[in-house]
């Protein structure tokens, strides 16, 4: 199996639905909390250490062979916002389609049958990485990166932000992304012995509440 499969999976053009989601950036922009590259960076940093860490650990645990049903339930408990649970399942279902096209295998087919309306996206991401022959660290990197690349891209569209500034934000977060991926994998490796409670549960209060606020808008650009 080829390590370069990680590039395919992490590519922003991978057709798995991410382009329609802002990762909470649209709500934060409307609330006046993201106005510039500087507070976009702070937003992304906060998301990386909360949603990104949790997603990375879930994905890594899925690569390690932890039961996807247990991981999906753990993701539910770590996602209080029903709007975010719905978004995560929709994205999981969309990713499943792309993953089955890219790396067809029985394990992905079985998950698609078990969760016809979608499992949480990081769980599917982990199984996709596993199907592609990638390791838990690869999956954690991919999930953690998506947690910041989505809002950064959305902010460019929402604020007409200079795309070079947004790219600079992502580049500056890279060292922290490394550390989050390491922490996520360490937690995932404890799951076989300690159960899913060993997974991190870091949360950003305004991400959850903001997602509910956003879901209630009659007019918006992004699905979440």
């Amino acid at each position: 199996m080829a390590r370069a499969a990680l590039l395919v999976l992490a590519d922003g053009r991978f057709p798995a639905g991410g382009h329609a989601h802002s990762g909470g950036a649209e709500a934060a922009v409307k609330a006046g909390r993201i106005t510039s590259a500087a507070n976009l960076e702070d937003f992304c940093r906060g998301r990386l250490h909360t949603a990104g860490l949790v997603a990375g650990a879930l994905a890594a645990a899925a690569v390690l062979g932890v039961d996807p049903g247990d991981l999906d339930a753990a993701a539910d408990a770590r996602t209080p916002s029903p709007a975010l649970r719905t978004a995560a399942r929709r994205l999981g279902r969309q990713l499943m389609r792309a993953a089955r096209a890219g790396w067809p295998c029985d394990e992905l087919d079985a998950l698609a049958r078990r969760f016809p309306k979608g499992a949480h996206q990081p769980v599917v991401l982990g199984l996709a990485a596993r199907a592609a022959g990638l390791g838990p660290d690869d999956a954690a990197y991919c999930a953690a990166y998506e947690s910041v690349s989505g809002p950064a891209t959305a902010a460019v569209r929402l604020l007409s932000l200079d795309p070079f500034d947004a790219t600079g934000v992502l580049a500056r977060l890279a060292p922290e992304l490394d550390r989050v991926a390491v922490t996520a994998v360490e937690a995932a490796r404890r799951v076989p012995d300690e159960g899913v409670d060993a997974l991190p549960a870091a949360s950003g209060p305004l991400l959850e509440v903001g997602a509910e606020w956003h879901a209630a808008w009659p007019v918006r650009l992004f699905a979440s």
Binding site: R13, P15, G17, H19, A20, Q94, L95, R97, A223
Partner: peptide, 10 residues
């Protein structure tokens, strides 16, 4: 256009 051409998953 992305939703009807490049990423049709939704």
């Amino acid at each position: 256009h992305t939703a009807i051409r490049d990423d049709i998953s939704a």
